[in-house]
Design a protein around this nucleic acid. Sequence first.
DNA 1: TGTAACTCCCCTCCG
DNA 2: GGGAGTTACA
Length: 706
Amino acid sequence: MGAWSGVADESNVDNGHWLDQLNPQQREAATAGDGPILVIAGAGTGKTRTLAYRVAFLLEKGVEPERILLLTFTRRAAQEMLNRATNVTRKIAEGRANTTSRGLQPARSGNRNHATRVWGGTFHATANRLLRVYGDAIGLGSNFNIVDAGDAADLINIVRQEQGLTSKEKRFPRKATCLAIYSRCVNSGDSLADVLDGYFPWCADFEDELKALFAGYVDAKQARGVLDYDDLLLFWNELLKSKTLGPKIGGRFDHILVDEYQDTNRVQADILRAMQRDCPNVMVVGDDAQSIYSFRGAEVENILNFPDQFPGTRLITLEQNYRSVQSILDATNAVMLGAKQRYTKELWSNRRSDSKPTLIICRDEDDQTRTIIDRVLEHYEEGIPLQRQAVLFRAGHNADQLEVELTRRNIPYVKYGGLKFLEAAHIKDIMAFLRILENPQDQLAWSRSLNLLDGVGPKTAAAAYEHVRSAGFNPAAIATFSPPTAGRASFAAFASLVVEMTVDGGSGSVSDQLHRIRKIYDPLVEATYEPAEPRLRDLDQLEHIAQRYQSRRAFLDDLVLDPPSSTSDFAGPPMRDEDWLVLSTIHSAKGCEWDVVYVIHAADGVIPSDMATGRDGEIDEERRLFYVALTRARDRLYVSAPLRYYVAGRPMTDRHSYAQLTRFITDDVRRQFDVVSPEPALETEDAITDVDDADSIRSRLRARWD
DNA sequence: TGTAACTCCCCTCCG
DNA sequence: GGGAGTTACA
């Protein structure tokens, strides 16, 4: 996406010693010796830069790249750091070449892409990589399919129906809720009763049923040869418990670096501790004030208690902010002052500014949309490209109206977060076809594909799966299944394609395979969706990204583990040199920065979300989220809130409701902003001293009549 | 057994 | 506005 922290490139490392590019604390972190290290890095303090230099330092020291494991929150973050590390090592090598006699090759000249051999990625992606290697050893096999949250919820639903858990007197929790409960249990290690009590009190009546459901879900995953996201971590953790495999896996590495440690959960911390037995050099980096993923089971205690859990920890704190002007930091520091749990860091910057950030109070959402777009265009006219400006919001749909208006005005934008490309039905359908070929046990994939065919519903799909199963999971057996009803034409076409592709499945590139599937799938799309055109274009794009992959397995795994976060991630060359505005959820903006940032919908109920007011600590997390949003800004920061929302109801009864500015902007915080309001006359003013007070005015007015 | 049409309820953030 | 559950009909 837009700009990553510390956009400054590493191009000038050859002026003086390369480590001179870092401040003393950063340098201490980058060059620290062995043992556990905790780096507390406030927003914008050069964390990415420090990690990149750390990697470069280790490589320079002679550590083999494949013996370094870099765990990050997204794969994009890992790539960014490794690219920068590569730049640093290249500059060092060039510098060395210049100081040695001409004609000599620089040291390690064959290792230009050294850093690309570092193990880098998310916990989940790393787990996948390890399980593909060691899965056979524990009977997991290496051809498991990974299911995303939607598929996992569907599978839970199947089990639920099998178990007859369709109570009528009181509604059973929805499938997504069931999955969320399950996930929280396994990620936190807490008992079902505690999780229900603490987070899902309205589901407490179903404890026994849920217990049975989850047991059935675990069995169902096993029977179908699939792992969900949580399984990846759980299985990795289990591998490490083995007396033989554990040391092997940990022993693969000499150094483990973990970014965004404040957003790891208990299983991830367990994994790290287990890895550390055989790889003592662990460095974690994070910021307790930016912990925003507890909804996913993240525990900020992991970073707070790191020194206890890893004895001998060296603590390094980065406090100088290189990103924002001081006036923005004044505002963000003020926001954090209100946190129940006080954080110790107070960020400071050398970057001065003569203007405060701006708080824009808007009449309603229309007003907000217009105002934001106007400001964006003003800054654009001043010479700040759209890509260096970002609009941030709490939830994906908060940007709906803005998107409509940007489209109407022909202003290009990309949106990150919110609904994923991959979650669209037509994408999942066609991916299901590939999943069948890769792992014929995957019942979800079969039923998804089969249900598309005319005259095939759940029953027929289940019978067909059973047929394939009894044939030893040979996918080609589908050809000998005869569907009971009409519509045999499309079934026959489907079956013969499966047979064809089973026979020569390995041959042909992934995008070729997709292309062949589309011959029967496109007509189905055209028949199913009214404007089919945009969906077909999505499939074109899918085919386009598939070109980057050598293997079907890698393609499937990547799309689940590292889904394209916006449609522009695979936009073709035409977009390349255009400019576009960035729209992003605050969560997806983590780690990024822009010259100008607009935080919209800063109204109570949105920030903090009205869904997050239940528990202690949830409000604090919303505050941190707001803090993360504000600290993305380098030069200019706008916060806006509509005071009125239209509630789209039935025709003729459209009403509006009134909103309040987010509670995180207290009077103290507000003083750090310039306030723009549509109705300044209605603003309440603090005590004014340059006119008489009301009493003296009244007595003077009265005096005329004396 | 599959499908279309109708109802009701609830809606977040992500790997 | 869309998922999930129900009903009527082919």
